[in-house]
């Protein structure tokens, strides 16, 4: 007998359009978006501003309805309260009830999530400890910095111990230490068997913690897969650093290189192939220049991301 594992999050040909502005112009925010997120993985949802990340998340949370296609979370419609009980959500740039203290706010969110009355104080304490906010537990949130609000935001998302956590730009407003702590929290969620779906445009975070990524541009999914599949590790270019190249040889070298940068008496050349390396080295020998380094470079996520965004733009995706 085969066991079919249903994806924790799934969208099928998900589209969303809405009318905006005085002339009620129709805007296509999402276009036939397909994605699947499996249980226990950290899925990074990447895209430039305005690509449709937040719209997708709003549909997954049940705050908006798709125009066509459908989305399921834990096998059911996102608006189903049985689903919401098992999902935690952190919105982008969260704004909370500033007249409440951190404890009052977390107790309210726990109550609304169905945490039993007797468990609420313990859960609130546990969450404040997790996000290192015990010192501000009884302060009204009106005085909180953006980073503090972000910490309370993750605490309220986890207060009911959800199986699925959906985070919209969770690293926004955090300093490097805060980002490191957040990454640790996200990784610990995976260790507990939870599924994490988070949107971001900070690529370093994705490279460090994500199992799989999806890249969305102009409302369309342009790439989805494991990072190791997307970034194959193949050598994309070779960087050669030469020292002491005189003027008359420089022109010849620059013709071979894709890119050249001069810094003092150093010349950094980027070439495409092994043959180009040989040609550069031959000229360097003739010019009696010193070879400081030859470094093969594979594609970074940033370069891959930029290339995909650009090509989607050329194809009318942006």
């Amino acid at each position: 007998m085969t066991v079919v594992n249903q994806p924790v999050i799934e969208t099928v040909r998900l589209s969303k359009s809405y009318r905006t502005g005085f002339r009620m112009k129709r805007v296509q925010a999402l276009s036939e978006l397909n994605l699947q997120v499996e249980q226990g993985e950290i899925f990074g949802f990447l895209g430039p501003n305005g690509a449709g990340k937040t719209t997708t998340i709003k549909i997954l949370i049940g705050l908006a309805q798709p125009s066509s296609g459908f989305a399921t979370v834990l096998g059911r419609a996102p608006r189903d309260p049985r689903v919401k009980r098992r999902v935690g959500f952190l919105p982008e740039s969260p704004y909370f009830y500033e007249y409440l203290t951190a404890v009052e706010f977390l107790a309210l969110t726990a109550q609304l999530s169905g945490v039993s009355r007797s468990e609420i104080p313990g859960r609130v304490r546990q969450m404040l400890k997790l996000v290192r906010m015990e010192h501000a537990a009884h302060q009204q949130m009106r005085g909180f910095s953006r980073g503090m609000l972000q910490r309370i935001g993750i605490a309220q998302a986890l207060i009911h111990d959800p199986e699925v956590v959906i985070l919209d730009e969770p690293m926004g407003g955090l300093d490097p230490i805060g980002r490191k702590e957040f990454r640790d929290i996200i990784v610990s969620l995976r260790e507990q068997g939870k599924t994490v779906f988070f949107s971001t445009h900070i690529l370093a975070d994705v490279e460090m913690i994500c199992d799989r990524v999806g890249i969305i541009v102009g409302g369309k999914m342009v790439e989805i897969g494991r990072l190791s599949e997307i970034l194959t590790g193949e050598v994309e270019s070779i960087e050669i650093t030469l020292q002491g190249v005189s003027g008359k040889f420089r022109k010849g070298l620059e013709r071979i290189a894709q890119r050249s940068i001069e810094s003092g008496d150093l010349l950094l050349l980027t070439v495409k192939s092994e043959e180009d390396v040989e040609r550069v080295l031959a000229i360097a020998r003739e010019a009696q220049a010193k070879v400081r380094s030859i470094i093969p470079r594979s594609l970074t996520l940033e370069e891959f991301f930029m290339a995909r965004v650009k090509s989607a733009g050329r194809n009318g995706g942006v």
């Binding site: 949370i61 049940g62 309260p81 919401k84 009980r85 609304l112 999530s113």
Partner: peptide, 14 residues
């Protein structure tokens, strides 16, 4: 307007 509604409606609140 303040988007606090996101936090409420993302929970099992009809």
């Amino acid at each position: 307007e303040k988007r606090t509604i996101y936090l409420l409606l993302a929970r099992p609140v009809r």
